[in-house]
Design a protein around this nucleic acid. Structure first.
Lengths: 113, 113
DNA sequence: GTATGTAGTACCCATTTGGATACTGTAGGG
DNA sequence: CCCTACAGTATCCAAATGGGTACTACATAC
């Protein structure tokens, strides 16, 4: 732990770790989204968990939370600049996961990726 | 969770998640290593945790464990083919972490902040 | 008045994760 | 004999993580 070299890996992981964070970030790559829209995309998440993950992501500066003073309440979440800088990483993760975990049985397909 | 699209992200994350896995993988990128060598590189890890993480990594097929029937015991860990395919991802993670977390105060190029 | 939808919060619980400490068995050095 | 090193295992414990259910406050629809 003396060298900062491994810390970079750990540090990055610590921000996108959590059962939903990676997926939240991934969905936010499609554009800004409201709380419940996100919840529906995620499927099995509870409000409590979604709130929690969203707050952590926000306090880590990866997403921006915008509250509109309307009724019914409207809150939108979007990637921050820092969050957008993570896009290639998330994409790399997804590409690797798709190829090596989801269908690890099948060769990565020579014509459809 | 219907679409496999987000699952790729989750799936990848689930394999490299854990306090030490990312770092273990990162160190193994330098070459095969013995148990205690790894432990020293990691610094604060306990044998119990290291063993645990190593076993999980092994059962996920990311690393290969080789036991030499010698005394004192010698066990070496190395990245598997699948593990090596993760290298670019780990590198992306590290690069991002270095740039955006470790010295997030300083802009990445302009000599000072 | 009741149900729906919005974006949460509060409370309480189970599982998982991480960790400290001690122990194994073999060999070499002093 | 005692200490070190190796690569773990065993036991016990604390904290973090994840999750369920119920509840808020306001407006619309019925």
């Amino acid at each position: 732990m003396e060298d900062p070299k491994e810390c970079g890996v750990e540090a990055a992981l610590s921000l996108i770790d959590g059962k939903w964070k990676g997926v939240i970030l991934y969905h936010l790559m499609d554009g800004r989204m409201r709380f419940n829209a996100l919840a529906r995309r995620l499927g099995a998440v509870t409000q409590r968990m979604l709130t929690k993950q969203l707050r952590e992501l926000e306090s880590d500066g990866l997403i921006v939370r915008t509250v509109y003073a309307e009724v019914p309440p409207r809150v939108e979440y979007a990637l921050s600049t820092k969050g957008r800088s993570l896009e290639p990483v998330i994409c790399a993760l997804k590409a690797w996961g798709d190829a090596n975990v989801l269908n690890a049985k099948a060769p990565p397909a020579r014509k459809a990726g």
